[in-house]
């Protein structure tokens, strides 16, 4: 009773600042470097925004919906590049998703330890191959193969569908989508694997003990519980596909046009920047910088969303 009088029931305020000058300096320094990362992100946005002011003020929001691209008359629109970016990314996701998630499920749920370590390492090594090497391989191996075998075959059988129509260029949305699929595969597989391994072992065993098959366990427990992790994996992979440059610029054909056929050449936001920036002057430079700004803002949004989801799913 007496002690209640002497000390309060509530904790005193936390004293955070150290009185040691060395510690203070050290805290200041580490905090400074941490702030540098934050400042870099802010500076990225600021820099690209100021550099693209001429384009922003000239074309306004109509830029996003316009299809013109004429450096001579100074008419520019972003739509063909937005289309190219979305088309290649969507194609890449559609191709890579079942393979990446399937491989992740195989590796976490079915593979014996040694197969897991070999295949797992190989899939992760896919992420280590420089994108310019994928581009090189695309130019000299994939594109000829598509042009001479795959595309004619598809056109002959499915040519009635507009998406598979037209002459087989080799270079185009299809080739870019395929290369992008390979490049986002490791992201999909490794983030999905993490989410799947986070599902508690006991839950699988509980369902197995009820007489379920392995596949039923994977579907009802593993895939179901890892769902938000799978969404995060998908969004992260999408982020990678949207901004991937070198492989795309080397195989997409670099044509600012919108075509229904996936065999037609196109351009993405990243590829047109890589292709045109060094030659561009004046307004066109500002236009390309605005495309970079759009790419940046989209990637910030997509990555923030993915990280927040991933943080929630593995907790």
């Amino acid at each position: 009773m007496a002690r209640e009088l002497r000390t309060g029931m509530l904790p005193p305020r936390v004293r955070r600042a150290s009185i040691n000058w060395g510690d203070r300096a050290f805290h200041g320094i580490t905090t400074g470097f941490a702030l540098l990362i934050a400042a870099l992100v802010a500076l990225l946005v600021l820099e690209l925004a100021t550099e693209s002011v001429p384009a922003l003020s000239r074309f306004g929001p109509g830029f996003l919906a316009s299809t013109s691209w004429n450096p001579v008359t100074g008419e520019f629109g972003a739509l063909p590049f937005i289309y190219g970016t979305l088309a290649t990314s969507a194609l890449a996701l559609a191709l890579a998703w079942p393979i990446g998630v399937g491989a992740a499920a195989f590796l976490t749920e079915l593979a014996p330890r040694f197969v897991r370590s070999i295949l797992g390492t190989m899939v992760e090594m896919l992420a280590a191959v420089p994108s310019v090497v994928y581009g090189l391989w695309g130019v000299f191996v994939l594109v000829p193969l598509l042009r001479e075998r795959v595309e004619p075959w598809l056109i002959e059988r499915l040519g009635v569908l507009p998406v598979f129509s037209g002459p087989p260029f080799g270079l185009g949305v299809f080739a870019a989508g395929l290369l992008l699929a390979v490049m986002i595969l490791p992201t999909l597989a490794s983030v999905s694997r993490e989410a799947m391994s986070a599902v508690p072992r006991g839950q699988r065993e509980a369902l197995l003990a009820l007489g379920a098959t392995r596949w039923e366990v994977i579907r009802a427990v593993v895939l179901a519980q890892a769902r938000s992790g799978l969404v995060a994996a998908t969004v992260l992979a999408l982020g990678r596909a949207l901004g991937e440059t070198m492989a795309t610029v080397m195989v997409i054909g670099n044509s600012p046009s919108i075509n229904v056929s996936i065999f037609a050449p196109a351009s993405t936001m990243a590829s047109v920047i890589a292709n045109d920036f060094n030659e561009a002057t004046g307004l066109q430079k500002a236009v390309l910088l605005e495309l970079g700004l759009i790419l940046l803002v989209v990637s910030l949004a997509v990555n923030t969303a993915a990280r927040l989801m991933a943080a929630r799913s593995t907790r």
């Binding site: 904790p11 005193p12 305020r13 936390v14 150290s18 009185i19 040691n20």
Partner: peptide, 24 residues
């Protein structure tokens, strides 16, 4: 993290929680 103290601990008459005392 978040741990706090009130009261005194005297080391030979000097309060180790006194203001200006370095924990080091």
């Amino acid at each position: 993290l978040g741990a706090t103290v009130s009261g005194q601990v005297l080391l030979e008459d000097e309060d180790v929680y006194g203001s200006g005392v370095d924990p080091v």
